[in-house]
Design a protein around this nucleic acid. Structure first.
Length: 257
DNA sequence: ATGGCAGATGTTATCTGA
């Protein structure tokens, strides 16, 4: 079974690329971020025609997350992280599908840092870590997938010195990500490719993709009962080379039954 | 220090992204 996460950067503008990728790789579960659309304008019929059921949490222009399941309807279990009823951003959605509990998240970017946006990012990260610990202690089969806006280590950035002033690479951001993983989660892509520079995002400027000047910040974390099933993980880099593509590429894991 | 590009909205200008 394959689980993938993809920051689409606008689900409607990305529809041709998204459908082509679904057809080509047939992931069983897909987490999407940055839908950039209201709930009403989510392209459900095109996604259903491709063979997927969906749950989504949209927001006009910004943010927005969705979970797709191939050949079945995902069953929503949570919408929004606990801990702040005033948080209006659509950044967390959770559902069961194909026997797994799947959390789809879009962590705040946090730039410019320091500042109020970075404070919001770190508060959100703390809420995520607190909730993730609850999930982990429940002993369920969980995959936490998404755009964490966190570059874990220097290995995960082309020229890391360029990013030291950026919220995705701030020491606090890396520390929060490390604390999360150390709860007992398996960072699947890193586990399957130790020591390898492997990226999931390349900015649109200066031919960043052509130069492989990227970052790794889209992650799939597996709970301890799922991690032993991990057989492969990688990035669908070829999707990033298409016309009208996202600045992120899909990340996927393969799990044995 | 800045800007390069892209998506969404709605002004052909502004915000956000990372």
């Amino acid at each position: 079974m394959r689980i993938a996460t993809y920051n689409v950067n606008g689900v409607n503008g990305r529809l041709p690329v998204l459908l082509r990728w679904l057809e080509a790789t047939s992931p069983d579960i897909v987490c999407m971020q940055e839908l950039k659309t209201s709930d009403e304008k989510f392209p459900l019929s095109a996604i259903e025609a491709a063979g997927y059921g969906a749950v989504w949490h949209g927001q006009k222009s910004y943010n927005g997350v969705a979970i797709l399941a191939r050949g079945e309807q995902p069953s929503e279990t949570r919408r929004g992280l606990p801990g702040d009823p005033d948080d209006t951003h659509s950044r967390y959605l959770e559902a069961t599908a194909h026997g797994l509990l799947v959390g789809c998240l879009y962590l705040p970017n946090g730039n410019p840092a320091p500042g109020p946006r970075f404070d919001y990012k770190m508060k959100w990260f703390e809420r995520l870590n607190s909730y993730a610990e609850t999930l982990l202690k429940s002993g369920q089969a969980v995959a936490l997938c998404g755009d964490y806006n966190a570059v874990p280590t220097e290995l995960d950035a082309y020229r890391p010195e360029r990013w030291v002033g950026d919220a995705v690479f701030f020491p606090e951001t890396r520390a929060a990500y490390r604390k999360l993983v150390e709860q007992g989660w398996t960072d699947a892509l890193r586990a399957m490719h130790p020591g390898e520079a492997i990226y999931t995002y390349w900015d649109y400027f200066r031919n960043a993709f052509g130069r492989n000047a990227g970052l790794r910040m889209d992650h799939i974390l597996l709970s301890p009962v799922v991690a032993p099933r991990l057989t492969a993980a990688n990035v669908d880099r070829e999707i990033r080379a298409l016309e009208k593509t996202s600045d992120h590429a899909p990340v996927w894991v393969e799990l044995k039954e």
